[in-house]
């Protein structure tokens, strides 16, 4: 106790002796007990715990490679059951990729508008609105899509799309595939709206992080706003924009509730975008009651969850690597 000095080495506290002793005592106790302890590293432990518990619960070697098929027949689970992830993985990748593409186009446009074109007040207002959009629960999008959009999609939009774009892959297909409106197209539509806030926010920050000097140099050479965007801002913000793409994809592939409500719950090779499909996330959400009843199914579904976890970790690592530059400078501003 008699030793004056900082609780941690290397901190310059030259005038420490002027402090009253009780403070210093409390100082040491508090930091040693609270912040030196493992609680401080909990995010890391939590991540490891999630992965560890799921690995423990999955009992991987029971199924092995049969998981990677499209054969899906387990009711009831028994010796002849097959558990192929194929159609679910297809649905996940298809919906997430399409949503990501649409969201990229729209949010790039919105981000450029906000950063470059709009005057201050509309720009701020739209920033607030897009951020608010991020907070709206996915289940609310789900019920809106199911009750309001699905009938419209099934009766009006999808038949006319099919008539007009039948020559485009995915937009033709048999008429019965349209059904009640739920299906891949509806899921993609709602997923797009759901991931737009996050992709817009990242792209906005990337565009803002382009050095002002480069932008001014472009303007001083007689470039218009759009020419500066296209030739200076977009090339320099490229990494951040691709990062946003990845993070949007990660968000879309992990979404379970809204997709489950809208995609039509059919594990199949979809004949068109109007047809029903299924995604990994939606499936493991829907089947959790069966998982509760059948331990074997639980193991399978936990494996599905592990695959989702793996995808999300990879996608997020890439996404954050790419957006790091713009995030840091965004923080500095």
């Amino acid at each position: 106790m008699s030793e004056p000095g900082p609780p941690e080495g290397g901190v310059p506290t030259g005038a420490a002796p002027t402090l009253p002793p009780p403070e210093r005592l409390r100082d040491r106790i508090t930091w040693k007990m609270v912040l030196g302890s493992p609680v401080a590293l909990l995010p890391m432990f939590l991540l490891a715990a999630v992965a560890g518990v799921l690995l423990y619960a999955s009992d991987l070697h029971n199924f092995g490679w049969s998981l990677w098929g499209t054969d899906w027949n387990w009711i009831p689970p028994g010796p002849g059951s097959s558990y192929g992830i194929g159609y679910f993985a297809l649905g996940s990748v298809l919906t997430a990729s399409l949503a990501m593409l649409l969201a990229t186009v729209l949010s790039l446009a919105m981000a450029i508008s906000i950063v470059v074109y709009l005057p201050v007040i509309p720009s701020r207002a739209l920033t607030v609105v897009t951020d608010l959009l991020a907070g709206i629960p996915s289940v609310v999008f789900g019920i809106w899509g199911f009750v309001v959009l699905a009938p419209y999609f099934g009766e009006n939009l999808e038949p006319s799309l099919r008539d007009a774009l039948y020559w485009l892959p995915g937009f033709g297909g048999p008429a019965f595939a349209i059904g009640g409106g739920t299906g891949i197209l509806l899921a993609v539509f709602v997923l797009t709206i759901m991931i737009i806030p996050i992709t817009t926010a990242i792209m906005r920050e990337s565009l803002r992080a382009v050095p002002h000097s480069a932008i001014e140099a472009g303007l001083a050479l007689g470039a218009t706003r759009w020419e500066v965007v296209r030739k200076v801002r977009l090339p320099m913000a490229r990494a951040g924009i691709f990062g946003a793409l990845f993070l949007g994809f990660g968000r879309a592939i992990g979404e379970s509730v809204a997709v489950s409500m809208l995609i039509g719950a059919t594990p199949q090779l979809p004949p068109s975008l109007y047809a029903g499909g299924y995604t990994i996330a939606a499936y493991i959400l829907d089947q959790q009651d069966s998982a509760f009843a059948y331990p074997v199914l639980l193991q399978v579904l936990v494996e599905f969850a592990l695959i989702l976890l793996l995808i999300s970790v990879v996608v997020n690592i890439v996404g954050h690597r790419l957006t790091r530059g713009s995030r840091n400078s965004g923080t500095l501003n």
Binding site: V116, Y117, P119, V120, I121, P122, A223, R225
Partner: peptide, 18 residues
């Protein structure tokens, strides 16, 4: 009305940089 990096078309380039 078309100063780069400022307001929206037609309006004073204003707003933001104004």
């Amino acid at each position: 009305d078309d100063i780069p990096g400022t307001g929206f078309m037609g309006s004073p380039v204003a707003g933001r940089s104004s």
